[in-house]
Amino acid sequence: MIKIYDYILSVNCYKQRLMMSILDVPFESIPIDFYPGWEHKSEEFKKINPLGHIPVIDDDGFMLRDAHAILIYLASKYDPTGLWYPTNNPELIGETAQWMLFAEGTTNTASAARLHVNLGYEFDIEACRAGAHRLFRVLEEHLWFREQENLGWVCSGEQPTIADIAIFPDVILSEEGGVARIDYPALRRWTDRVKRIPGFVPMPGIFPVGDARPISHEGEANA
């Protein structure tokens, strides 16, 4: 079984828990006392990850660190549909990589602001917030135009990809870091859609959402 060096309030660990839950992959969580114990910075933990951060997974002896790398690994290995990491489609895989890099940006701004406010990290909080808003504006426009084309996800396919899983937690917890989402209605609608993916699990600070529109069986669109 996959072991994950895990912390319940970590955005990056949640990305893996969410992906494994959606892919229905059983895992064992090894809790790390991230705050206030700083266990991930301990000499002992640096033997597991010399960079001193979580998550790290141990899949039957295969060790991997870095949240977005782990998402690529999990989807490649455990998604038989090949939709979450669409390697057989050059355009889509390019987009996925592009938005995974975008997710590095949201992690380093929106989620950094949250680490500063909630978990004792020292960052330039105003720079983090301004950076998050810059990225959210780009994502808002992008997702609004996706909706205009009757598409719902970050990449241009009809199914969500690991890019959605990589960006979603940074966005949905942004208010904890003082980054309001009131100016991003398309972004808020997209978070509803992610929450409706079968297998979705919440974490503290993320709440379930109302149902999706039931599919009409009477031949007529349930508009």
Partner: peptide
Amino acid sequence: ASAEDLPYRHIFQGQLLGRE
């Protein structure tokens, strides 16, 4: 808000004259 801001079972967050 715009009508498309209110899809099925979504709750839109708006603000007018300081009131959320």
